[in-house]
Amino acid sequence: MTDIAASPDSRMDQFLAGARACVPVAISVAAYGLVWGVLARGAGLSLLEVIMMSALVFAGSAQFVALDLWTATPAALPIGALVLAALIVNLRYLLLTATLRPLYPAKGLLGGALSMYLVTDENWAMTVAAMARGKGSVAFLMGGGALAWIAWMSTNLVGYGLGSAIDDPSRWGLDFAFTATFLALLLGMWKGRGDLVPWLVAALAAILTSRLVEGSWHILVGGVVGSLVGAYLETRKNAHKS
């Protein structure tokens, strides 16, 4: 871990590099943040509740699902369903944060575990792409997370303040910014023919799951199945060699 020995200056550089790397996806986060703010007002959340939810939960897809379940009358609020939905939508983070473990030193796990708060799909993707090139650091991860947090929170508030109908992000093609960025990151991770089968399996499993089940299950199912196939093929190949 060179990061521990690194000077504060270079850690700041890494933090800023992480933030810069996340600019392409932060634009999309901001567009959806605006929409979420507008919808949150429509769903009957107070300004304080918007701030609390975006600050503490900080998970876009879970927050969109929560708006479907939210009621303006407190007594009717389905607390159990809201918590369960957040758990289910966010289960994919088990896979994401597990892959970030190599960035952290062997000791001091509590601080590392707490820093997972700032992990989103976006800065995770940028950081694992950097790790694949032998780069990436905790500061890089945090820089991207901080940018995503600011983009999400500030546009939530603007959307809530405007309150009126805002253009659908898909009208400007902004819904595709996530897909395009993740696709480019995926291509950048290509290491050779050994990746082809696991990726195809992950893609097919995800497509099938998304047809059958609502929500974000396809990410978890595709991620688990594809990576297990990859690990199986790799260990079998190594066993043949030895």
Partner: peptide
């Protein structure tokens, strides 16, 4: 196996994120 599995997660998760959006 476990280490190989962790190494393959990023690509598989990204493929799973992208594929349904492109196909559907």
């Amino acid at each position: 196996f476990a280490a190989a599995w962790l190494r393959h997660i990023p690509g598989a998760v990204l493929a799973a994120l992208v594929a349904p959006a492109v196909v559907t």
